[in-house]
Design a protein around this nucleic acid. Structure first.
Lengths: 261, 261
DNA sequence: CATCAAATTCAGTTATTATGAAGTTATGCA
DNA sequence: TGCATAACTTCATAATAACTGAATTTGATG
């Protein structure tokens, strides 16, 4: 850079900021106290600018701000561990989270509103998303010990059934399994959208339910016993991302963030 | 800004950073996760840029990074209060400090290496500096009670004199005063460059000294008594700044930072 | 698959920034 | 103190970067 160009820039900056930055009564011109403050700030500014370039340097690590969805029933158990793992294994990445139903999250992944989501894979995934399986969770019947005297068949035939939302991922699997059992016609099924509420009712001896093991275990109260479901497909928790998207190639890295501590 | 110009800037930024920022397979193009991170950083960057402009906005307050000198013998007492006051009354300013002899600091103010300094005004100040008086400190004789029996005249005539550096601001005033007293020819004067050491010796009963009141008081040990000096000029602590400099007009604001809490 | 709107590319223009020569101004030495 | 010198600034001009509008390509919609 020419001295003349520098001089013009100096003048221009003084005009722009509206303050005297240089004391030209001496040679070489010296910085005013105000200018020293400006330099201070400016150096910090340039350092931050470098951080953007640094951020974009190619590396074997997840970098970016990702929007990740968690199906409500899994968020409680998977999200805390994810945040913790991300802190250590993906410090250059940050995440925005939202929870919702599997179907909703899946649509948002397809439409690009989410970069990835953890959903229940009940009836297959569209081609538009790539997926990896995170967990397989078997279903169990759960009921108070007092209702168990008639065995599984008696339990199902005689007591109230607490059914988690039949139109959700988990719910569809539950409904499917229940078709194999004879059930009284009316008034014996209660649909609820809260795992916590279901398990509370079960704990009170108000009936039985059929849910994935980890949820039952997490919300278990004393006197409640579990009976393995004989035929049900397991609940598959899968991580999905748009096919061909940047994340689809990084799936393994992202998947690692879901490992139990 | 035209859409075409925007498009070109988008492409240029991607080339500069070497990463894909936009997913152009959809309309409107959407940000990649990496781009969202970049946006995050960039917004913070712009905010900091505004801070520089804000810094330069004219206001009735001291703004800038100032280099201030404190004469060594005053730094102990004045600097802590100054820092404290500055925190409250001049939050937009910051300061670099150095300590040294009055003469050295004064030269640095004249040459512009310092923006201001607190010095002892022993024999007048050059035209090149503006000044305000911060403190007037009378001199006192100090000696152990045991040496006081012969009064001031006896003290001076018979005991060892601890003389603070005669070539400094304070030292010159001390030397001037001592000319009015008859002193034994040889071996009775010890020159020291440390107020602390002098007062320690005086405390041990090894002789007497003549120093500004605040320093004596600060370092007083038991058994040491003070006698007011009869004729001495007081020590003047003055704040100086280059004449015509930016600070010379703001002297009153700066002076306020030296007010006792 | 055709159509339309949206985004990009390209060529030309304008605005910004840099250069080199000429003119000022502080500094140092007689 | 005054003159010579080097340092800085100013000005005219050249180089570069950014912008605009028309033409083209490309994703979205029926």
């Amino acid at each position: 850079m020419t001295l003349s160009a520098l001089s013009m820039q100096m003048k221009a900056l003084e005009a722009e900021l509206g303050v005297a930055l240089f004391d030209r009564s001496v040679r070489p011109p010296k910085l005013t106290p105000m200018a020293r403050s400006v330099v201070n700030e400016a150096e910090a500014l340039l350092l931050r600018e470098d951080r953007i370039v640094e951020l974009c340097r190619p590396r074997e690590e997840i970098v970016g701000r990702f929007r990740v969805g968690f199906v409500t029933t899994a968020a409680v158990r998977l999200l805390p561990g994810f945040v913790k793992n991300a802190q250590g294994a993906a410090p250059m990445a940050d995440f925005e989270f939202e929870t919702g139903l599997s179907k909703v999250l899946q649509d948002k992944v397809v439409s690009g509103q989410l970069d990835a989501a953890v959903v229940t894979d009940a009836d297959g995934l569209p081609d538009a998303v790539a997926s990896v399986e995170l967990r397989q969770e078997p279903f169990v019947f759960a009921a108070s010990e007092r209702l168990m005297s008639g065995g599984l068949a008696g339990l199902i035939a005689q007591h109230r059934f607490f059914h988690f939302m039949p139109d959700t991922g988990i719910g569809k699997l539950i409904a499917h399994e229940m078709q194999g059992f004879a059930r009284p016609e009316h008034g014996k099924t209660v649909v609820l959208d809260s795992l916590e509420a279901i398990m509370e009712c079960v704990g009170e001896g108000l009936g039985f339910t059929l849910l994935p093991v980890p949820d039952v275990v997490r919300l278990l109260s004393k006197d409640v016993r579990m009976i393995e479901a004989p035929t049900t497909r397991k609940r598959r928790l899968v991580l999905i991302a748009p096919t061909g998207g940047a994340l689809a190639k990084r799936m393994a890295l992202l998947e690692a963030l879901f490992e139990p501590a």
